[in-house]
Amino acid sequence: MDVKVNIRRYDPDAGAPASFWQEFSLAVPETATVLDALIQIREEMDGTLSLRCSCRSAICGSCAMRVNGHAVLACKTRASESLNSEGVVTVEPAGNMPVVKDLVVDFDTFWDKIRAVEPYLQPQGPEPEGEYIASNESMLHLSSVTACIMCGACVSDCTVLEVDPTFLGPAALAKAYRFTADPRDGDAAGVSQRRLEQLSLPSGMWDCTRCNECVQVCPKGVAPMDRIMALREQAISLGLGDNNGARHAEAFTESVAHSGRLDELRLPVKTVGMFNLPALFSFLPVGLRAMTHGKLPPLVHKSVENVQSVRRLFSKVSQPPK
Protein backbone atom coordinates (compact mmCIF):
# COMPACT_ATOMS: atom_id res chain seq x y z
CA MET A 1 0.00 0.00 0.00
CA ASP A 2 1.43 3.39 -1.04
CA VAL A 3 1.16 6.13 1.54
CA LYS A 4 2.33 9.70 1.80
CA VAL A 5 3.22 10.81 5.29
CA ASN A 6 3.28 14.56 5.77
CA ILE A 7 5.22 15.35 8.92
CA ARG A 8 5.56 18.64 10.76
CA ARG A 9 9.24 18.79 11.60
CA TYR A 10 11.34 20.98 13.83
CA ASP A 11 15.07 20.99 14.45
CA PRO A 12 16.34 23.38 17.11
CA ASP A 13 19.95 22.73 16.00
CA ALA A 14 19.11 24.16 12.60
CA GLY A 15 17.54 27.35 14.00
CA ALA A 16 14.93 28.92 11.71
CA PRO A 17 12.42 28.08 10.36
CA ALA A 18 10.47 27.29 13.48
CA SER A 19 8.88 24.26 11.87
CA PHE A 20 8.36 22.94 8.38
CA TRP A 21 6.40 20.25 6.58
CA GLN A 22 8.07 17.33 4.90
CA GLU A 23 6.28 14.64 2.89
CA PHE A 24 7.57 11.08 2.57
CA SER A 25 6.22 8.59 0.03
CA LEU A 26 6.59 4.94 0.88
CA ALA A 27 5.00 1.51 0.55
CA VAL A 28 3.82 -0.18 3.75
CA PRO A 29 1.95 -3.44 4.46
CA GLU A 30 -1.86 -3.18 4.44
CA THR A 31 -1.99 -3.72 8.21
CA ALA A 32 0.70 -1.13 9.00
CA THR A 33 0.07 1.41 11.71
CA VAL A 34 1.06 5.05 11.42
CA LEU A 35 3.90 4.18 13.78
CA ASP A 36 5.10 1.40 11.47
CA ALA A 37 5.26 3.96 8.68
CA LEU A 38 7.19 6.45 10.84
CA ILE A 39 9.67 3.76 11.90
CA GLN A 40 10.16 2.77 8.29
CA ILE A 41 10.87 6.40 7.42
CA ARG A 42 13.34 6.70 10.29
CA GLU A 43 15.17 3.47 9.52
CA GLU A 44 15.18 3.50 5.74
CA MET A 45 14.69 7.05 4.53
CA ASP A 46 15.66 9.72 7.02
CA GLY A 47 17.59 8.93 10.22
CA THR A 48 17.21 12.50 11.44
CA LEU A 49 13.49 12.04 12.18
CA SER A 50 13.02 11.96 15.98
CA LEU A 51 10.04 10.42 17.75
CA ARG A 52 9.41 8.48 20.92
CA CYS A 53 8.05 4.95 20.57
CA SER A 54 8.60 1.66 22.24
CA CYS A 55 6.01 -1.06 22.85
CA ARG A 56 3.98 -1.00 19.57
CA SER A 57 0.97 -2.26 21.54
CA ALA A 58 -0.62 0.79 23.17
CA ILE A 59 0.73 0.21 26.66
CA CYS A 60 3.91 2.32 27.08
CA GLY A 61 2.35 5.65 26.14
CA SER A 62 5.37 6.93 24.20
CA CYS A 63 3.91 7.64 20.76
CA ALA A 64 1.06 10.08 21.37
CA MET A 65 1.01 12.60 18.54
CA ARG A 66 -1.51 14.35 16.33
CA VAL A 67 -2.60 12.42 13.29
CA ASN A 68 -4.85 14.41 10.97
CA GLY A 69 -5.24 17.03 13.68
CA HIS A 70 -6.22 14.83 16.63
CA ALA A 71 -4.12 13.20 19.32
CA VAL A 72 -3.73 9.42 18.95
CA LEU A 73 -1.26 6.70 19.76
CA ALA A 74 0.52 6.18 16.46
CA CYS A 75 0.86 2.46 17.24
CA LYS A 76 -2.91 2.07 17.65
CA THR A 77 -3.81 3.91 14.44
CA ARG A 78 -3.98 2.08 11.13
CA ALA A 79 -2.30 3.95 8.30
CA SER A 80 -4.89 2.70 5.82
CA GLU A 81 -7.68 4.27 7.86
CA SER A 82 -5.89 7.61 8.20
CA LEU A 83 -5.37 8.52 4.55
CA ASN A 84 -7.23 11.37 2.90
CA SER A 85 -8.46 11.18 -0.70
CA GLU A 86 -4.94 11.94 -1.96
CA GLY A 87 -3.47 9.11 0.10
CA VAL A 88 -1.85 11.48 2.60
CA VAL A 89 -1.74 11.15 6.39
CA THR A 90 -0.71 14.24 8.36
CA VAL A 91 1.43 13.80 11.47
CA GLU A 92 2.27 16.51 13.99
CA PRO A 93 3.67 16.57 17.52
CA ALA A 94 1.21 16.50 20.43
CA GLY A 95 -0.24 19.88 21.36
CA ASN A 96 -0.09 22.01 24.51
CA MET A 97 3.51 20.96 25.18
CA PRO A 98 6.62 22.61 23.74
CA VAL A 99 8.25 20.75 20.86
CA VAL A 100 11.78 19.47 21.56
CA LYS A 101 12.46 18.06 18.12
CA ASP A 102 10.17 16.81 15.35
CA LEU A 103 7.51 14.65 17.04
CA VAL A 104 9.12 14.76 20.49
CA VAL A 105 7.50 17.14 22.99
CA ASP A 106 8.60 18.33 26.42
CA PHE A 107 6.62 16.52 29.13
CA ASP A 108 8.06 18.49 32.06
CA THR A 109 4.89 20.41 32.89
CA PHE A 110 2.84 17.26 32.32
CA TRP A 111 4.79 15.47 35.07
CA ASP A 112 4.84 18.55 37.31
CA LYS A 113 1.05 18.46 37.31
CA ILE A 114 0.97 14.73 38.02
CA ARG A 115 3.31 15.35 40.97
CA ALA A 116 1.10 18.24 42.13
CA VAL A 117 -1.77 15.86 42.92
CA GLU A 118 0.45 13.83 45.30
CA PRO A 119 0.08 10.73 43.16
CA TYR A 120 0.46 7.97 45.72
CA LEU A 121 -1.91 6.20 48.06
CA GLN A 122 -2.32 8.00 51.40
CA PRO A 123 -4.26 5.88 53.88
CA GLN A 124 -4.87 7.61 57.21
CA GLY A 125 -5.26 4.54 59.38
CA PRO A 126 -2.87 1.66 60.02
CA GLU A 127 -2.35 -0.83 57.20
CA PRO A 128 -3.99 -4.23 57.64
CA GLU A 129 -1.74 -7.22 58.06
CA GLY A 130 -2.94 -8.84 54.85
CA GLU A 131 -4.53 -7.14 51.89
CA TYR A 132 -7.24 -4.49 52.21
CA ILE A 133 -10.63 -6.10 51.77
CA ALA A 134 -12.40 -4.35 48.90
CA SER A 135 -15.09 -5.29 46.42
CA ASN A 136 -14.08 -6.47 42.99
CA GLU A 137 -16.40 -3.80 41.54
CA SER A 138 -14.51 -1.03 43.35
CA MET A 139 -11.20 -2.34 42.02
CA LEU A 140 -12.52 -2.79 38.48
CA HIS A 141 -13.77 0.79 38.62
CA LEU A 142 -10.32 2.01 39.71
CA SER A 143 -8.60 -0.15 37.12
CA SER A 144 -10.59 1.58 34.41
CA VAL A 145 -8.80 4.77 35.55
CA THR A 146 -5.39 3.26 36.31
CA ALA A 147 -5.50 1.97 32.73
CA CYS A 148 -4.22 5.49 31.96
CA ILE A 149 -0.78 5.14 30.38
CA MET A 150 0.17 8.84 30.75
CA CYS A 151 0.53 9.24 27.00
CA GLY A 152 -0.60 12.88 27.10
CA ALA A 153 -3.18 12.59 24.31
CA CYS A 154 -5.83 14.23 26.52
CA VAL A 155 -3.47 17.03 27.50
CA SER A 156 -2.51 17.56 23.87
CA ASP A 157 -6.10 18.24 22.83
CA CYS A 158 -7.45 19.86 26.01
CA THR A 159 -9.14 23.11 25.01
CA VAL A 160 -8.74 24.66 28.46
CA LEU A 161 -4.97 24.12 28.54
CA GLU A 162 -4.79 25.89 25.21
CA VAL A 163 -5.88 29.14 26.90
CA ASP A 164 -4.91 28.47 30.52
CA PRO A 165 -1.63 26.59 30.99
CA THR A 166 -2.12 26.62 34.78
CA PHE A 167 -5.07 24.17 34.56
CA LEU A 168 -4.12 20.85 36.15
CA GLY A 169 -5.54 19.18 33.08
CA PRO A 170 -7.34 15.92 32.34
CA ALA A 171 -4.48 13.47 33.00
CA ALA A 172 -3.58 14.82 36.44
CA LEU A 173 -7.21 15.16 37.51
CA ALA A 174 -8.00 11.61 36.39
CA LYS A 175 -4.96 10.49 38.35
CA ALA A 176 -6.25 12.37 41.40
CA TYR A 177 -9.64 10.70 41.04
CA ARG A 178 -7.90 7.34 41.05
CA PHE A 179 -7.04 8.12 44.72
CA THR A 180 -10.18 9.92 45.83
CA ALA A 181 -12.21 6.95 44.56
CA ASP A 182 -9.93 4.38 46.20
CA PRO A 183 -11.50 2.91 49.35
CA ARG A 184 -7.96 2.55 50.76
CA ASP A 185 -7.11 6.26 50.45
CA GLY A 186 -8.09 8.87 53.07
CA ASP A 187 -10.02 8.09 56.25
CA ALA A 188 -11.53 4.81 57.39
CA ALA A 189 -14.57 5.40 55.15
CA GLY A 190 -12.26 5.96 52.17
CA VAL A 191 -12.96 9.70 52.04
CA SER A 192 -10.03 11.78 50.80
CA GLN A 193 -11.15 15.12 52.25
CA ARG A 194 -7.82 16.96 52.00
CA ARG A 195 -7.26 15.92 48.39
CA LEU A 196 -10.71 17.13 47.39
CA GLU A 197 -10.13 20.47 49.15
CA GLN A 198 -6.88 20.92 47.21
CA LEU A 199 -8.48 19.91 43.94
CA SER A 200 -11.29 22.45 44.47
CA LEU A 201 -8.81 25.34 44.30
CA PRO A 202 -8.46 27.46 41.14
CA SER A 203 -6.80 25.55 38.24
CA GLY A 204 -8.38 22.37 39.60
CA MET A 205 -11.49 20.34 38.94
CA TRP A 206 -13.79 23.34 38.39
CA ASP A 207 -11.78 24.73 35.48
CA CYS A 208 -12.79 21.99 33.05
CA THR A 209 -15.29 23.29 30.48
CA ARG A 210 -16.62 19.84 29.64
CA CYS A 211 -15.74 20.04 25.96
CA ASN A 212 -15.31 16.23 25.87
CA GLU A 213 -12.15 16.33 23.72
CA CYS A 214 -10.18 14.30 26.28
CA VAL A 215 -12.83 11.58 26.27
CA GLN A 216 -12.75 11.47 22.48
CA VAL A 217 -8.97 11.17 22.13
CA CYS A 218 -8.09 8.94 25.11
CA PRO A 219 -6.75 5.71 23.58
CA LYS A 220 -7.43 3.70 26.75
CA GLY A 221 -11.05 4.56 27.47
CA VAL A 222 -10.15 6.39 30.68
CA ALA A 223 -12.65 9.18 29.95
CA PRO A 224 -10.82 11.87 31.97
CA MET A 225 -13.69 14.38 31.79
CA ASP A 226 -16.09 11.88 33.37
CA ARG A 227 -13.57 11.46 36.22
CA ILE A 228 -13.41 15.23 36.66
CA MET A 229 -17.21 15.32 36.91
CA ALA A 230 -17.03 12.52 39.48
CA LEU A 231 -14.51 14.59 41.48
CA ARG A 232 -17.02 17.47 41.48
CA GLU A 233 -19.74 15.20 42.82
CA GLN A 234 -17.41 13.96 45.56
CA ALA A 235 -16.44 17.55 46.47
CA ILE A 236 -20.04 18.78 46.62
CA SER A 237 -21.16 15.79 48.65
CA LEU A 238 -18.45 16.71 51.17
CA GLY A 239 -19.86 20.23 51.31
CA LEU A 240 -16.89 21.79 49.54
CA GLY A 241 -19.14 24.37 47.89
CA ASP A 242 -17.34 27.57 48.79
CA ASN A 243 -15.84 28.25 45.39
CA ASN A 244 -16.94 29.67 42.07
CA GLY A 245 -17.10 26.30 40.39
CA ALA A 246 -19.40 24.67 42.89
CA ARG A 247 -21.58 27.80 43.16
CA HIS A 248 -21.78 27.96 39.37
CA ALA A 249 -22.92 24.34 39.23
CA GLU A 250 -25.48 24.92 41.95
CA ALA A 251 -26.81 28.16 40.46
CA PHE A 252 -27.02 26.47 37.07
CA THR A 253 -29.03 23.57 38.48
CA GLU A 254 -31.23 25.86 40.54
CA SER A 255 -32.08 28.02 37.57
CA VAL A 256 -32.91 25.17 35.25
CA ALA A 257 -34.83 23.31 37.92
CA HIS A 258 -36.89 26.40 38.68
CA SER A 259 -37.58 27.83 35.24
CA GLY A 260 -36.51 25.19 32.77
CA ARG A 261 -33.85 27.45 31.30
CA LEU A 262 -30.67 29.22 32.30
CA ASP A 263 -30.93 32.66 33.89
CA GLU A 264 -27.79 34.03 32.27
CA LEU A 265 -27.99 37.35 34.05
CA ARG A 266 -28.02 35.93 37.55
CA LEU A 267 -25.69 32.99 36.94
CA PRO A 268 -22.42 34.97 37.13
CA VAL A 269 -23.69 36.92 40.13
CA LYS A 270 -24.55 33.78 42.04
CA THR A 271 -21.28 32.17 40.97
CA VAL A 272 -18.97 34.80 42.43
CA GLY A 273 -21.31 35.71 45.32
CA MET A 274 -23.86 38.48 45.68
CA PHE A 275 -21.59 40.66 47.83
CA ASN A 276 -18.33 40.08 45.97
CA LEU A 277 -18.18 43.66 44.65
CA PRO A 278 -14.75 43.51 42.91
CA ALA A 279 -15.79 40.43 40.93
CA LEU A 280 -19.18 41.94 40.12
CA PHE A 281 -17.56 45.16 38.87
CA SER A 282 -15.25 43.07 36.69
CA PHE A 283 -18.34 41.84 34.81
CA LEU A 284 -19.34 45.41 33.85
CA PRO A 285 -17.27 45.66 30.64
CA VAL A 286 -18.60 42.32 29.42
CA GLY A 287 -22.13 43.39 30.31
CA LEU A 288 -21.74 46.67 28.47
CA ARG A 289 -20.35 44.99 25.40
CA ALA A 290 -23.23 42.50 25.46
CA MET A 291 -25.69 45.36 25.72
CA THR A 292 -24.23 47.33 22.80
CA HIS A 293 -24.29 44.17 20.67
CA GLY A 294 -27.85 43.35 21.61
CA LYS A 295 -26.78 40.21 23.48
CA LEU A 296 -27.82 41.10 26.99
CA PRO A 297 -30.14 38.45 28.43
CA PRO A 298 -33.65 39.66 29.28
CA LEU A 299 -33.82 41.41 32.66
CA VAL A 300 -37.00 39.54 33.49
CA HIS A 301 -36.30 35.82 33.42
CA LYS A 302 -39.26 33.79 32.18
CA SER A 303 -39.92 30.11 32.65
CA VAL A 304 -40.30 27.82 29.69
CA GLU A 305 -43.75 26.58 28.81
CA ASN A 306 -44.61 23.38 30.59
CA VAL A 307 -41.99 24.03 33.30
CA GLN A 308 -43.83 21.52 35.46
CA SER A 309 -42.47 18.63 33.44
CA VAL A 310 -38.89 19.92 33.86
CA ARG A 311 -39.45 20.06 37.61
CA ARG A 312 -40.83 16.53 37.55
CA LEU A 313 -37.68 15.39 35.76
CA PHE A 314 -35.54 17.01 38.43
CA SER A 315 -37.44 15.45 41.28
CA LYS A 316 -37.17 12.09 39.56
CA VAL A 317 -33.38 12.21 39.14
CA SER A 318 -32.80 13.56 42.65
CA GLN A 319 -34.46 10.52 44.21
CA PRO A 320 -31.92 7.98 45.38
CA PRO A 321 -31.71 4.97 43.04
CA LYS A 322 -33.73 1.95 44.17
Partner: peptide
Protein backbone atom coordinates in the same frame (compact mmCIF):
# COMPACT_ATOMS: atom_id res chain seq x y z
CA UNK B 1 2.46 -9.19 46.94
CA UNK B 2 0.85 -7.66 50.03
CA UNK B 3 3.36 -4.77 49.88
CA UNK B 4 2.26 -4.09 46.31
CA UNK B 5 -1.38 -4.13 47.35
CA UNK B 6 -0.65 -1.69 50.17
CA UNK B 7 1.16 0.58 47.74
CA UNK B 8 -2.06 0.80 45.76
CA UNK B 9 -2.07 -1.83 43.00
CA UNK B 10 -5.70 -2.41 42.01
CA UNK B 11 -5.64 -6.21 41.95
CA UNK B 12 -8.85 -7.97 40.92
CA UNK B 13 -10.70 -9.42 43.94
CA UNK B 14 -12.62 -12.57 44.70
CA UNK B 15 -16.18 -12.69 46.04
CA UNK B 16 -14.98 -12.03 49.59
CA UNK B 17 -13.07 -8.92 48.57
CA UNK B 18 -9.71 -10.65 48.92
CA UNK B 19 -7.10 -10.79 46.17
CA UNK B 20 -8.33 -13.02 43.36
Amino acid sequence: LIDLEHMGVTFNRDDEGKLG
